[in-house]
């Protein structure tokens, strides 16, 4: 979480992006000079299925207010089927987080290809807005990691 000069809450977003599509998509949105919030921190992973549930929890623990996972579109995974496994895993994980009463809008999976720079920026803007509405993450934070 960060607070700017106007004391406005700026959510910290962690975006896991697969190397082959979404990371390239993020690159493209950069070279096209499209804007998305600076508080989106990208973590590059070889494939979306590299992300295990612990990564998502850890991100929240270390202060993320929202976590988004981006990978190749279904059928386009560089490793053929990685994102299909990701999809099942994340669906179950998000459902469990929801079951524990953690706001469901803090997590998301989005498929972004290397050609979709505009979609990447739009997704990040939209997701950041949604998390901003929820306010700082309190239900899944580790107090010892709180910055201020």
């Amino acid at each position: 979480m960060q607070v700017n000069e106007n004391k406005e809450f700026q959510p910290l977003i962690v975006a896991f992006c697969c190397n082959w599509c979404s990371y390239a998509g993020a690159d493209l949105s950069g070279t096209n000079r499209l804007n998305y919030p600076t508080n989106v921190k990208i973590i590059r992973v070889p494939c979306s299925c590299r992300v295990n549930p612990m990564f998502i929890l850890r991100a929240f623990q270390r202060g993320a207010d929202g976590v988004i996972l981006c990978g190749c579109h279904p059928g386009d995974c560089h490793y053929t089927s990685g994102n299909y496994f990701t999809r099942r895993r994340m669906t179950l994980l998000f459902s469990m987080l929801d079951f524990l009463g953690i706001e469901r809008d803090r997590t998301r999976v989005e498929w972004v290809s290397a050609a979709e720079g505009a979609k990447f920026a739009a997704t990040m803007n939209e997701f950041t807005e949604a998390v901003k509405k929820l306010g700082p993450n309190r239900r899944l934070e580790d107090l010892r990691c709180r910055k201020q």
Binding site: R87, R88, T91, D98, R104, D105, R108, V109
Partner: peptide, 8 residues
């Protein structure tokens, strides 16, 4: 398979 957004 359904998308993860089903949870939402």
């Amino acid at each position: 398979d359904c998308e993860s957004s089903i949870v939402h």
